[in-house]
Amino acid sequence: MFKSVHEKPGKASDMTVLVNGVEIGAWNGETVASVLLRAPGAGRGSTVSRTPRLPYCQMGVCFECLVIVDGNASMQGCLVPVAPGMRIESQHGPREISK
């Protein structure tokens, strides 16, 4: 769906991260929500109908990017910069605690 202008054939990405256990290249400056748009099948399941969702606003106001980052659930992926080796996992259904 998106591709970085920095991506060139034969040029390594700035880092790799794991999305649902699968390695994917990532670029300095991007957020977890940005990676979710490139990783196949990385969407969230909506709370009620469990239909697939992907990040919508990228600015912290839609919460479609809720995701598990390095074991921490319900993180807003668009507010978390990527880091080498980061483990990102899709979150399905409602948030567990919080509120």
Partner: peptide, 25 residues
């Protein structure tokens, strides 16, 4: 508007500023 693939122009611009992301297809 909830389908994956639909998002705001602002979101796309943020993606451009953050990781140089361009929409494809």
């Amino acid at each position: 508007w909830t389908l994956p693939g639909v998002m705001t122009v602002g979101a796309a611009q943020i993606l451009l500023k953050s990781g140089g992301m361009l929409p494809q297809g």
